[in-house]
Design a protein around this nucleic acid. Sequence first.
DNA 1: AGGTAAGTTTGATGTGCGTCAAACAATATG
DNA 2: CATATTGTTTGACGCACATCAAACTTACCT
Lengths: 126, 126
Amino acid sequence: MNDAEPLKRPENEIGDGELLEQPDAADIELVKVLHALGDPTRLHLFRVYADGERYSCSSERLGVGHLHKSTVSHHMRIMREAGITATRAVGRNRYVRLRRADLDARFPGLVETLLRAYEGNAPQVP
Amino acid sequence: MNDAEPLKRPENEIGDGELLEQPDAADIELVKVLHALGDPTRLHLFRVYADGERYSCSSERLGVGHLHKSTVSHHMRIMREAGITATRAVGRNRYVRLRRADLDARFPGLVETLLRAYEGNAPQVP
DNA sequence: AGGTAAGTTTGATGTGCGTCAAACAATATG
DNA sequence: CATATTGTTTGACGCACATCAAACTTACCT
């Protein structure tokens, strides 16, 4: 077994992969976004994904190793359905990224403000 | 009976009234704020209070006349305990206002960004 | 004092949510 | 092909939440 973590492929190297269903940019609702981020785990994931694309349930990378993989998958779905993240399926893996452009277009400054607010707040993930 | 609505007193005229318990500015947690605003009714109230101080359960003014007064009181408490609003008890009435300065100090730009985001979104209150 | 009005509190109810566990599907690897 | 790996789905469980209704508190009014 290879004990090195799987490589994070740069975004521009992933041309394949199927995009999982998600709301159109125009259909992203503020209250759903806030509801999705009003959970400690998801707010943490939001911060993690702000750094770039990642594996979704590769627990160690996400810092949610204490949670069951099905629980993480559940949070992924909520954020995706809220329009916060985009997920592409490549092989067995899921590549998740923030829909930064769509969010910025719909709610200017929100992502930036939240990330900055999170910095000074720094809650520990439960 | 006086069928005119009770006057909204300007903020600087209310020197009396007891401040209901609320978290210190430094103890306001981002995730609690987001959770509090991740509800359609409370997000609406957030917008209403941004205009200035108001009665709390005076349903017609708040645009939540369809809700029971105890339900409104419940939402008030959640927002107050999240640090979003400050409530002062004057006589039988409650004057509620946004803790704008405290929120701005802790999460710069958040209130402004949310209000702007809400404008373009404009969900109808359930 | 008696009655009315404003809010809170408590209880009850239905619903949704976060979590885990087990089963399942799909893909990679020997 | 056989087996392991990645993630989703389904079911179950407990807890939190949004809501209403009724009781209660406090204050205003005549």
